[in-house]
Design a protein around this nucleic acid. Structure first.
Length: 608
DNA sequence: CCCCCCCC
């Protein structure tokens, strides 16, 4: 098929790579690759595109991260014809060699790939190395600045000029430690308070801010003198020209922005407020993860989240244990259309001022995952930003869902409130459980909660060497040669993981049951991890036995599942522990009050 | 060079 049928700009790639401006070139998309993430985090994807102009192809084309949705929502698909409204040619250092990369910051699909259906023309691959002849282009723009090219040689963005002067700016996405002569035009989306620190390596003060432009985002940190110099002039929401900061690899543990790098101000750093064409610089960017995904995140992960506020608690005054310092907090619950709910903690003035009435939608950038009582929750940090009822397409979609469908009755709550844990099942004595014939129905398990004492915990066969495959967990056959066989996987492994499957008799004043507690619950009861227990067993069997002995007469709140099963031709009720919590004075009291209030409620119903 | 972000 002819390349011209769809108006591809033949020869554009060759020109662009040589540093010649091409106005709104039309390309065909031939494929893309998700670049591997260095730190294994999700949500920071970057896509490398293979584009064709009908004559040449170029695979050193990157998509600005805020355009990722075009790939993820299948808009920019294979064979699609697209008009590039904004791009930037930059150099990257790849294994000591300079490579030229086209960064796409504005693109519009003019004909969907499904309609085109094939590769147009017979394009050949274009060389991405920076060749000797391409430096002529550098000279033409007056930017011959040494080994690494410091700025775009070809740019098509009206916003990238200082008013009438022609000093061009660099997109954030093109910044790297390998170049130092750049000016970025960015909006400050967040600014932390100034904080002081003192440790073995010294003391000082620091603040950081988040910057954004049309190509991406980056964190910028200022230490000591730089705090004094720039803190007051920098305002959230305003646009600045910034130059001469030190780039370094981003520490993803503390920085969730979509950028491999972060930067630090230096004595040479210049920051100038910008008032021209500031509307070209976007405002806050979110990278939402659905609430159901929160369940699988790790503690301390930083995420962006969007949800409808279903309930909100009063503010609470709490005291930090080690410093005695007082804090104000407020917990709220949010849901989204993944049908999951999570608790979010706000702090300080934000907590005091928060009004959760009329089910507002909140968008949070940089919330931190926490764990409590076996559940997950979210907490705002100093670096987090919260927007109420944001004017975002995702928010309008979520509002539509909430008003038409709404959360279902079985929406999954990922958070566990203090004290009782996930013990929503009715609290019973064993006698009551017997009277209610719990667990005797066929195929339907019954859940209930008991407060009970461990009478006897079996030490035999409680710990086993299990298949290292997380989804398998099968007991391995120790071949005494340092090799372990899993019959389920039909494989030999050099390693194993310890797992617990503890059988115990628990009793309250009215009766008792034999129950089975699995890994996490058994670990809580024994006060040691399966791994530690396994090693203890190897090294000091007596101490290992003692650990189990120590568990006897301990009292816990057990969440139990009772289910009928056939065992040796007989029906029996098998009890498994689905959650266990320490039975302290407060949980005891909370559940007692809960129970009494239920009884009072029933009594009222009956007397009416 | 910070990296604390609190409580049940």
């Amino acid at each position: 098929m002819s390349a011209n049928m769809y108006g591809l700009t033949e020869g554009a790639l060759e020109k662009i790579m040589k540093g010649v401006d091409v106005d709104k070139p039309v390309f065909q998309m031939l494929g893309y690759k998700k670049l591997p993430n260095k730190d294994g985090t999700i949500g920071n994807d970057r896509y490398r595109l293979l584009v064709s102009d009908g004559k040449n192809m170029n695979s050193f084309t990157m998509l600005a991260t805020q355009l990722n949705h075009l790939i993820e929502n299948n808009i920019l698909t294979e064979y699609a014809i697209c008009k590039v409204s904004n791009y930037h040619l930059s150099s990257v250092n790849s294994g000591g060699k300079e490579k030229r990369v086209i960064l796409i910051m504005g693109i519009e699909v003019t004909t969907p790939g499904s309609k085109v259906g094939c590769k147009l023309g017979n394009p050949t691959n274009i060389e991405s190395k920076s060749e000797a002849d391409s430096t002529t282009a550098d000279k033409s723009t007056g930017q011959t600045t040494g080994r690494y090219q410091t700025n775009g040689t070809a740019q098509r963005s009206n916003s990238n000029n200082y008013g009438s002067s022609d000093i061009s700016t660099t997109p954030i996405a093109a910044l790297s430690p390998y170049q130092n002569k750049w000016v970025i035009k960015v909006r400050v989306t967040n600014k932390s308070p100034i904080r002081t620190w003192s440790n073995s390596r010294g003391e000082g003060k620091v603040f950081s801010m988040d910057l954004i432009d049309e190509s991406g985002e980056i964190r910028c940190t200022a230490f000591r003198d730089m705090c004094d110099k720039f803190y007051d002039m920098l305002e959230i929401g305003n646009v600045y020209y910034i130059s001469r900061c030190q780039l370094k690899a981003a520490n993803k543990q503390f920085n969730s922005l979509k950028n491999d790098y972060e930067m630090t101000m230096t004595n040479d750093t210049e920051i100038v407020p910008c008032h021209e064409n500031i509307e070209d610089i976007p405002t806050l960017q979110f990278n939402f993860c659905s609430i159901s995904q929160v369940e699988n995140k790790e503690r301390n992960d930083i995420i962006d989240v969007l949800g409808v506020v279903t309930t909100f608690n009063d503010v609470q005054h709490i005291v930090k244990r080690n410093t005695g310092q007082e804090f104000v907090k407020r917990d709220i619950n949010i849901v989204d259309d993944s049908n999951a709910m999570v608790s979010v903690t706000l702090w300080g003035k934000q907590a005091e001022d928060f009004d959760g009435s009329n089910n507002p939608i909140i968008a949070i950038k940089g919330a931190r995952i926490g764990e409590f009582n076996g559940g997950k929750n979210l907490s705002l940090l100093n670096s987090s930003t919260l927007e109420k009822d944001p004017d975002l397409p995702e928010a309008h979609r979520l509002r539509g869902w909430y008003t038409t469908v709404g959360p279902s009755e079985n929406a999954k709550s990922l958070s566990r409130v203090g004290g009782g844990g996930d013990f929503n099942a009715p609290l019973h004595t064993f006698e009551e459980a017997t009277e209610a014939r719990l667990g005797e129905k066929l195929n339907i398990p019954d859940s209930y909660t008991v407060m009970a004492t461990i009478c006897l915990i079996r030490v035999e066969n409680s710990i086993y060497k299990a298949c290292p495959v997380e989804s398998c967990k099968k007991k391995l056959i120790d071949q005494s040669t340092g090799i372990f066989r899993c019959e389920k996987c039909n494989r030999d492994y050099p390693n194993f993981v310890y797992r617990l499957l503890a059988s115990m008799n628990i009793a309250d004043a009215t009766g008792s049951r034999w129950i089975t507690a699995f890994s996490e619950d058994a670990e809580k009861i024994l006060g040691m991890s399966a791994q530690e227990l396994g090693e203890l067993k190897e090294n000091d069997n007596e101490a290992y036995m003692q650990k189990f002995g120590d568990a006897n007469f301990k009292r816990f709140m057990f969440s139990l599942r009772a289910k009928s099963e056939v065992f040796q031709d007989e029906m029996r009720v098998r009890h498994t522990c689905s959650s266990v919590a320490p039975l302290n004075y407060k949980t005891h009291l909370t559940h007692l009050i809960d129970k009494v209030s239920k009884l009072v409620h029933i009594e009222r119903l009956e007397s009416n």
